[in-house]
Design a protein around this nucleic acid. Structure first.
Lengths: 247, 247
DNA sequence: GTTTGTGAAATATTTCACAGCG
DNA sequence: CGCTGTGAAATATTTCACAAAC
């Protein structure tokens, strides 16, 4: 068996499994996908799922899925599959989603405002409790019941309101300054939408999302598709096209 | 043009270098970062940059940067570094950014509206020329001079208006249908913000951005930081903290 | 002297393929 | 039987380290 060797049987303690501390980064990236697919299955009333089916729903290879789960310490039943509800709860525990996290968004231009109103955050356990901007024209504005505050008040709010995640949606030029404020206030998880690399101390996790970068990567593929082939291979595309739809 | 052709051999044709077709995916992901950093340097009046400096500005190892560039076919000067302007032009060529791409956004809820107004797209060569939604309450609305059309008109618009990239910002339930419409209309590059896996035929490139997933990954790190250590190691964090800022 | 370009080593990640459990 | 769990093989990616170019 994996590790956890102990007592009579694999009763998973509420918090998180003993092992989960140093999962491969690639595995961690996939866990939220698994969780989402499990949620869909659960809503559909499915109680058990095979690695093959769950892998198809998340776009990965089934062996990789099994390996990911076994590294987590989760377990299925041979010949049967995984219990959907139990597995979802287990993954949620590993991801630390058993209680909601409190999030601040800094920078309320178009993107920041959209993020502040994005329902997917609260649906998945992230409470947006603070909105901050430096622009007097934006400070004081009300977004879905939350008032935008002066970024000068950020540090205190982080401490007083238990904010653990900062989302930076400012222009690139302001992003490093905001990151410094967040770090000084004790935030160790940052999601950065500004198009720049942030310097932060060891121990602070930063994830970067750059929307234009995604388009540029698509542009690369587009460019080399039309470049590499005059027009061929379109047949194969059309042929496969009817295989999609439904899991 | 791209390489500033040198004499007899390796005259790179305007479009892209001879080699660029099958770059490692990891390299392609980094090219937009390099390009952005080069743009910043260029604006600052810098003419030449070493792999060490450019790597620092993009958060990668300098050897990897050099390997990436040499795989592209780009070249620097030993003892000197890379010409900023030439390298930027070269990478832009490889990414197919020499001419603007035409983009449609489907789904104009909060996120879609923010994307439609996001200045970073047009700044980096992506023209948003079509906005589509299925909601009669949104169709007809005007966003920064572009009118939102009925999604039923999508296929024709793709063909008539030379749209090559589709951005899906609908709820998950509608995303696969929209993807099918796009694919049927001939779009082969899709950026998907909906929280679901899209099935598309071979030859269609899909990139997925799920904002909640990013927060969940941060949650994992946060969870296992506070879990693994009662409170230690904060000293090291604070010590390093003053090393940031400025490259 | 500095910095590129790159083999070779080290890691990380994915896939195969099958023993073994339920 | 079908399906999990996992060694071992295959790939992919990153880092090291140094010779060659300027």
């Amino acid at each position: 068996m994996t590790t956890t060797g102990e007592g009579t049987d694999r009763e998973v303690p509420p918090g998180a499994p003993a092992t989960a501390a140093d999962l491969p980064a690639a595995t961690v990236r996939r866990l939220p996908e698994y969780l989402r697919a499990l949620g869909t299955l659960s809503e559909a009333g499915v109680e058990t799922v095979s690695s093959e089916t769950l892998a198809a729903a998340t776009g990965v290879n089934s062996a990789m899925l099994r390996k990911d789960l076994s590294q987590l310490g989760a377990s299925g039943m041979r010949g049967v599959g995984y219990n959907v509800a139990a597995l979802a709860a287990y993954i949620a525990g590993v991801l630390g989603l058993t209680k909601d996290s409190r999030v601040a968004i800094i920078g309320l231009g178009h993107l920041g405002q959209a993020l502040a109103r994005y329902p997917g955050f609260s649906e998945r356990g992230f409470d947006i409790v603070g909105l901050f901007d430096a622009d007097p024209g934006i400070i004081g504005r009300d977004l879905d019941g939350i008032r935008v505050r002066d970024v000068a008040l950020l540090a205190r709010a982080v401490r007083d309101e238990g904010i653990s995640i900062g989302v930076i949606a400012t222009p690139g030029a302001a992003a490093q300054h905001v990151a410094d404020l967040l770090v000084d206030a004790g935030v160790t998880s940052i999601l950065n939408f500004a198009p720049c690399v942030l310097a932060v101390p060891q121990g602070v996790a930063v994830r970067k999302v750059d929307l234009a970068v995604e388009l540029q990567i698509l542009s690369f593929h587009e460019h080399h598709k039309t470049l590499g082939r005059p027009d061929a291979q379109q047949a194969a595309v059309d042929r496969d096209h009817r295989l999609r739809r439904r899991k």
